[in-house]
Simulated assay, not measured.
Amino acid sequence: MPSEMLKTFLKPMHPEGYKFVAAFAVVTLVLFWIWEPLGWIGTGLTVWCYYFFRDPKRAVPQGEGLMVSPADGMVSLIERAVPPPELGMGDAPMLRVSVFMSVFNCHVNRAPVAGRLVKMAYRPGKFLNASLDKASEDNERNSLCLELADGRRIAVVQIAGLVARRIVPFVSEGQGLKTGERFGLIRFGSRVDTYLPEGVVPLVTLGQTCVAGETVIAELGRDLPQRLAKMV
């Protein structure tokens, strides 16, 4: 029982976080030397840093056509928008589902659906609040175009936020991805947009909390109505 409780609170950490946690720990030791109360503040920040870089395993739903959320967080936008021009996917608007990640969410991003990464394009930019609509156009971003088995293409866009200063990809062009596979990480608060194929409607709603690799955001190949919800 104690070991199971420990696993509930102690999640694996992504290697990307090792150097940051180590730096926080060193600073904490210095703060303890300067003044003990400052050291305890540093301890809290070190724990938060570890928690930020957590990389827990996820139970990815198995089923043909299931699209899962690429990020932990809250659905902040559902609207039609043109995919980033650097992906070369044309000027036709696609339905976009945006998931906003706060600094308390897990920031490891996962592929929403199986496909081949035909293009990945990084573009520098501003660091506006990632929950804002204009962040999609103005902020630093890393855009991925995935080609599905049936030839359709979707876009997944990692967008840096107000605090985020680094987008870290784990994949390269030409690589095949499985549904729920890790493809990147954004450090310290951000957003991930998913552009759905024509005719596919989201099965999530504004304000809904999503879990990367687990929450089904849409189903390909099925004529389903858009899901609605209300806050209670």
Results as ranks from 00 to 15, higher is better:
residue 124 P to L: 05
residue 150 D to G: 10
residue 159 I to W: 07
residue 43 T to S: 13
residue 89 M to I: 07
residue 172 S to A: 14
residue 32 F to C: 11
residue 145 C to I: 05
residue 139 N to W: 03
residue 4 E to L: 11
residue 40 W to R: 06
residue 154 I to R: 00
residue 118 V to Q: 12
residue 55 D to A: 15
residue 116 R to W: 06
residue 108 V to C: 13
residue 93 P to L: 02
residue 154 I to E: 04
residue 33 W to E: 13
residue 5 M to C: 12
residue 155 A to K: 06
residue 172 S to I: 00
residue 25 A to G: 13
residue 6 L to V: 14
residue 59 A to V: 07
residue 23 A to D: 12
residue 111 A to V: 05
residue 224 L to A: 08
residue 205 T to A: 15
residue 200 V to K: 05
residue 183 F to Y: 15
residue 127 F to I: 00
residue 89 M to S: 09
residue 184 G to H: 09
residue 57 K to V: 01
residue 31 L to N: 09
residue 210 C to E: 05
residue 109 N to K: 11
residue 18 Y to N: 15
residue 221 G to D: 04
residue 114 A to F: 07
residue 67 M to W: 10
residue 136 S to I: 00
residue 126 K to R: 15
residue 202 P to W: 03
residue 118 V to P: 07
residue 101 M to V: 06
residue 161 G to E: 04
residue 190 S to H: 04
residue 214 E to K: 13
residue 197 P to T: 02
residue 142 N to P: 09
residue 199 G to N: 00
residue 231 M to S: 10
residue 128 L to P: 01
residue 2 P to T: 09
residue 70 P to C: 02
residue 144 L to D: 08
residue 75 V to P: 11
residue 28 T to N: 09
residue 135 A to K: 03
residue 191 R to P: 06
residue 153 R to I: 00
residue 151 G to Y: 06
residue 141 R to H: 14
residue 39 G to H: 07
residue 196 L to G: 07
residue 194 T to L: 13
residue 8 T to C: 14
residue 51 Y to H: 12
residue 156 V to M: 08
residue 187 R to I: 12
residue 90 G to S: 08
residue 137 E to V: 03
residue 128 L to A: 06
residue 42 G to P: 08
residue 96 R to D: 04
residue 32 F to R: 10
residue 229 A to F: 09
residue 70 P to I: 03
residue 224 L to G: 02
residue 44 G to S: 02
residue 194 T to N: 07
residue 77 L to N: 12
residue 37 P to Y: 07
residue 149 A to L: 07
residue 11 K to A: 13
residue 92 A to E: 15
residue 136 S to D: 10
residue 150 D to Q: 08
